[in-house]
Design a protein around this nucleic acid. Sequence first.
DNA 1: GCCATGGCTAGTA
DNA 2: GCCATGGCTAGTA
Length: 103
Amino acid sequence: MQPFTKRVIEVIQSIPEGYVATYGQVARLAGSPRAARQVVRILHTQSHIHKLPWHRVVNAKGEIAIKDDESRLMQELYLQDEGVTVNHLGMIDLKKFGYDPAE
DNA sequence: GCCATGGCTAGTA
DNA sequence: GCCATGGCTAGTA
């Protein structure tokens, strides 16, 4: 596994229950600020192998960004379960639920 | 090396 | 447009 991939996995694992992080934020925390799309790819390829909390990653606007309807619903349910509010448009209030590593 | 992938994103129009 | 990977291919040794 490549170093960046490893760091991304660690970052994702560090997102606490009840919070969400952004693709770009994960990339930044992993040391490559503009590599948001890599994060997407890594989530795709590594989620099931590493039991990643993939549902805690959303786009920069705070929306669920999954294309596939079933997975999309899964993500919403998982988040609701953890106490994260998702509105009818699939949006999450980042002010409230955004992951802040500094806290 | 090249090239596709991918659930993106900062910053214009 | 950005950019790290993995897969595949031409083209050297």
